[in-house]
Amino acid sequence: MSQPVEEAIKKIFPELTLTSWAQFPAIEISRDSLLSACEKLTTHPDLRFDMLVCLTAVDRTPRLEVLYHLRSTTHGHELIVKTELDESQLEIPSVVSFWKAAELFELEVYDMFGITFTGHSDLRRLFMPDDWDGYPLRKSYKASEVADNYLKSHQLLIN
């Protein structure tokens, strides 16, 4: 929002292009450099992103975007970090060591999108049952078909 954060990002990550997501500045980081970038984002005195406001994903088949909404409580600025994953390799390093809130957020994204967070100590289905097939928020998951199949397999469908 404010000018200083955008300048700081340009200075600290000169190789990245600054875009925007809704009203926030945004940067795209590759999966391999995510952890080293998080290190800089949390510790650099001009950034100090100490709060992970939200962690979510968007299914843009065939690629999935993982979004990290960061905020600094000392400077008051905000940033969206975006990482793109290919549908065939849905793995991303866990950021629990930087923000404790990620522990729950990552479980939700794993449950809804099937993205595996390597390094998460307790990766499990959070909302869906353990033996559930498919990941509900993926675009390939058709809720009406799933419901029909469930009813058919349990012989609950009338006609």
């Binding site: 809804m112 307790d122 959070l126 909302f127 928020l137 998951y141 809720a143």
Partner: peptide, 17 residues
């Protein structure tokens, strides 16, 4: 440890349709 999902209705998924 919390266990969730007993009242999961999929509001985000429903909103997409």
């Amino acid at each position: 440890r919390p266990f969730l999902g007993y009242i999961h209705r999929g509001i985000e998924k429903m909103s997409e349709s």
